Each structure stands twice: as C-alpha cells, then as structure tokens.
Simulated assay, not measured.
Amino acid sequence: MVREWGEAIMENASEKECVSLLTGCWAIWEARNKMIFEGRRVCVSEVLCRVRDLVEEMEESGSHKEGGSALEDCRLEERWTRPEQGSCKVNVDAGLCGQGVGLGAVCRDAEGGVLWGVAVQQQEEREPQILEAEAILLGLAEARRHGVTKVVLESDCLNVIRDLKSRSTGRSDIFQIYDDIHDLCSYFESVKFLFVRRKFNSVAHELAHVRPWQLGRRIWYEVLSQNIAEFVSFDLVNIR
C-alpha cells in the first residue's frame, strides 16, 4: 500500500515536488538514526530546516552548473579549503534543538589548525535565518576579540550569505543583524563571505549542537572535544 501510494505521488508530481518529497524522507530517516544511534532527539522544526536547506542547496547548485546567476556573487566551496597565508577561516552554523537553539563558530589558520571554537546555547527560539545571521555575528565578534585581521567567513546558509554580499536592506529584525555584521566588518582589514556545502561545515554544525547541552557560552582553544575533533580530521583529509 505504501509503495503504491508513493508511486502514485511520483507519477503525478513535478520534478521539484519529487525532489522535495525524497529529501523530506531522507531528513526524517537521518533524524531517526540520530535518535536511535546517538540518543539525540531531533525536533520537527530542525528536520524542516534541514529539508529546506538541502532542497535550496540542490536548486542553487543546479543553477550554478547551468550557468545561472543565483551563485554569481556567492562562491561555492566544494570542500573545506585553506585560507590564504595571513588570513583565518571562520566557519559558522546555527541549529534548533529540543532544549533551545545553538550557535557555533570555529577559526582555523592557513595550515588547517584550529585556533579556537565557540558554542553559544540559549533557550529562546528564533527563526532559522535569524539564527544563521547571529552565528555569523558571533564568528566575527570572536575573530575580532582574538585579534584576527583578515577573515574568510563560511556559512551553509545561502540566503544570508547572498544578502550580506549584496548588502540587502529592509525593516525586519534580520536586517538589523546585517547592519551589526557590516559595522563589525569595519574593524578588519578584509572580510570575505562564502557559501559552503553543509557537509564541509560540519565542525561549526557540531559546535552548535555540542553535548552536553549547557546554557551560555563555551570556548575551546586548539583542541576541541573528541567527537568534534573527528570532523576537523575529516576536513584535513579532504583539504586542498
């Protein structure tokens, strides 16, 4: 019955609808595995955000390959890459969890070595895009606090990166955060905003979801917790 139902949907759905449906099924399966094998319960809102990000990433990637303009101003990183000598790369991410929300940022040098990583966890939930912008603000604020002068900042939220590069304006709350980000940029010699695939933003993602859950700010220097260090190693294996 389930198979017949699925086949009927696929036959009558558009290509985009099929992609969304299959992506949704995959995200639910991923959440189920996290609960069974990691003991981590993923809330519905996080699953929906995951589906949205995946579908958006596939659509934008397709436009890029076909010569579309969606990513003309947003360099797409296919893997984690070293920043140039004299610069540091800051990867950021945000996430919704059962207890609240988390922001994560990690800074690495031209050799790929971790300089610091920070996690901020709060109870007040906010819209995913606002959280992603707040993660960028966190990453830049920490970079300034640690004396970084040249920053390459990567996020897997395409909309926010695109807005920052185009200096989009508006009256909603997120544009106030954009203003704060641009004001903070004036304290650096240079800041580059890049969009990176989620797969290669895993260190920041894990920092945003770091366990045990703990309200407030935590920071690590050079050595991250064991489970997060594994993702650092993955980046280094695939580095270029």
Results as ranks from 00 to 15, higher is better:
residue 68 G to S: 09
residue 69 S to R: 15
residue 71 L to E: 11
residue 72 E to C: 15
residue 73 D to Q: 14
residue 74 C to F: 10
residue 75 R to V: 10
residue 75 R to G: 05
residue 77 E to T: 06
residue 79 R to T: 09
residue 80 W to C: 04
residue 81 T to G: 01
residue 83 P to R: 02
residue 86 G to L: 03
residue 90 V to Y: 00
residue 94 A to C: 05
residue 95 G to S: 14
residue 95 G to E: 00
residue 96 L to Y: 04
residue 97 C to S: 07
residue 100 G to C: 03
residue 100 G to I: 00
residue 100 G to Q: 02
residue 102 G to A: 06
residue 102 G to V: 00
residue 102 G to M: 04
residue 105 A to S: 12
residue 105 A to M: 11
residue 107 C to S: 04
residue 108 R to F: 03
residue 108 R to N: 03
residue 111 E to T: 14
residue 111 E to D: 11
residue 111 E to M: 09
residue 113 G to I: 02
residue 113 G to Y: 05
residue 115 L to V: 00
residue 120 V to T: 08
residue 120 V to E: 11
residue 123 Q to E: 13
residue 124 E to K: 13
residue 129 Q to G: 00
residue 130 I to G: 06
residue 132 E to S: 15
residue 133 A to Y: 11
residue 134 E to N: 08
residue 136 I to V: 14
residue 136 I to T: 04
residue 136 I to M: 12
residue 137 L to P: 06
residue 137 L to H: 13
residue 137 L to Q: 14
residue 139 G to K: 07
residue 140 L to A: 07
residue 141 A to F: 05
residue 144 R to C: 03
residue 145 R to C: 08
residue 150 K to N: 15
residue 151 V to D: 03
residue 151 V to K: 13
residue 152 V to Q: 13
residue 153 L to C: 12
residue 155 S to Q: 07
residue 157 C to M: 10
residue 161 I to P: 01
residue 161 I to V: 15
residue 165 K to N: 15
residue 166 S to F: 06
residue 169 T to S: 10
residue 170 G to K: 12
residue 173 D to G: 08
residue 174 I to E: 00
residue 175 F to S: 04
residue 176 Q to M: 07
residue 178 Y to T: 05
residue 179 D to Q: 15
residue 180 D to Q: 14
residue 181 I to F: 02
residue 182 H to F: 12
residue 184 L to R: 11
residue 185 C to I: 07
residue 188 F to K: 09
residue 190 S to Q: 15
residue 190 S to H: 14
residue 191 V to H: 02
residue 192 K to A: 07
residue 193 F to E: 03
residue 194 L to K: 12
residue 194 L to E: 05
residue 196 V to G: 05
residue 197 R to M: 05
residue 203 V to C: 01
residue 206 E to D: 15
